[in-house]
Amino acid sequence: MKSAIGAVNNTDLSMIFTDFKEITKARLAVSVVFSSLAGYLLGAYEISLVSLLLLAFGGYCMVGASNAYNQIIEKDLDALMKRTRKRPIPSGRMSVKTALTTAVVLTILGILSLLALSPKTAMFGAISIFLYTSVYTPLKTKSPLSVFVGAFPGAIPFMLGWVAATDDFGIEPGTLFMIQFFWQFPHFWALGWMLDEDYKRAGFKMLPTGNKDKGTAIQIIFYTIWMIVISILPVFGFTGRLQLSIVAAAIVLLAGLVMLFFAFKLYQNRDNVSARKLMLASVTYISLIQVVYVIDKFIS
């Protein structure tokens, strides 16, 4: 009897943990934490393990809170899409009250953790939550400009790490912000291209022209080129302490050109297969260049 009760409890705990991962979008949150830690390592004069842990925990909480608020606001729309209808709220596994409580607790824990690093870090974290939930989320059903607005909170994590390490906002974190800002357009438009039919079921307007056409593909190419240009700027010495060696810049440039190749393939083919390849290339690109930036700092 006890073993049966234990099995039930273990199942319940497993489901709670699974729902927590889904409501906070754990994979996305971890990738955001990775970006912020990379930014910290780039900015830090001396590395503090406590600061890294606070940044990782606070970053996860802030992203998790944003995603939870997002799923509360969009619960009815999520129920209309194949990709999201099995999320905790639309599936009925989690109540709105539970999700809201989770979001509020994560917000408080996140802000306190980032505040322990510096007031500026906490401020940027709070701004990211506000923009994501109060501007980006409601704008998704109204205008393709939502992607532009959403790129601001999405670009904060890389920059946030530098600010957490230095308590300073200047050309260096500004450059990190711009790299991730421009990266988001080809990334999210490739994703939007793949999921266009599903998004339209919920009334989301994610593609810049509203359609999977040449206009959208051209804009993807345009923003990818800007991303490449900004990502190699540190090799020219214009960006303060944020610097790149020639070898590192060549690697970053090559990674960007690979992404640009897939952007041109999307323009040529205009199909979901090409969009998926671009999306996967973009995910690889952002993680790769962050690793290259960090390694280059410590070996140069």
Rank of each mutant, 00 (worst) to 15 (best):
I218C: 06
I218D: 14
I218P: 03
Q219V: 00
Q219E: 14
Q219S: 08
Q219A: 05
Q219T: 01
I220E: 11
I220D: 10
I221Q: 14
I221F: 12
I221E: 14
F222W: 13
F222P: 07
F222E: 12
Y223S: 09
Y223D: 10
T224E: 14
T224F: 05
I225L: 15
I225A: 15
M227H: 13
M227E: 13
M227P: 04
M227T: 14
I228N: 12
I228W: 12
I228K: 12
I228E: 12
I228M: 12
V229C: 13
V229G: 12
V229H: 10
I230H: 07
S231F: 10
S231M: 12
I232W: 09
L233N: 14
P234W: 03
P234E: 08
P234F: 04
P234H: 05
P234V: 10
P234A: 10
V235N: 02
V235D: 02
F236N: 06
F236E: 06
F236V: 08
G237F: 01
G237L: 00
F238I: 13
F238T: 15
T239N: 07
T239C: 06
T239P: 00
G240H: 01
G240S: 03
R241T: 08
L242H: 05
L242I: 08
Q243D: 08
Q243A: 09
S245W: 02
S245F: 00
S245P: 03
I246Q: 07
I246K: 04
I246P: 00
I246E: 09
V247R: 11
V247A: 15
V247F: 15
A248W: 02
A248V: 04
A248S: 13
A248P: 06
A249R: 07
A249I: 08
A249P: 10
A250K: 06
A250I: 09
A250H: 06
I251Y: 08
I251V: 15
I251R: 02
I251A: 12
I251C: 07
I251T: 04
V252S: 08
L253Y: 04
L253N: 05
L253A: 14
L253F: 14
L253R: 04
L254Q: 06
L254T: 13
L254E: 09
L254Y: 13
A255M: 10
A255K: 06
G256N: 04
G256D: 02
G256S: 03
L257V: 14
L257T: 05
V258T: 07
V258G: 00
M259R: 04
L260A: 03
F261Y: 15
F261E: 07
F261R: 12
F261I: 01
F262Q: 09
F262L: 05
A263C: 03
A263S: 15
A263L: 02
F264M: 08
K265T: 02
K265D: 11
K265C: 01
L266I: 05
L266R: 04
Y267H: 13
Y267R: 12
Y267Q: 07
Q268V: 00
Q268N: 03
N269Q: 13
N269P: 01
N269L: 10
N269D: 13
D271E: 03
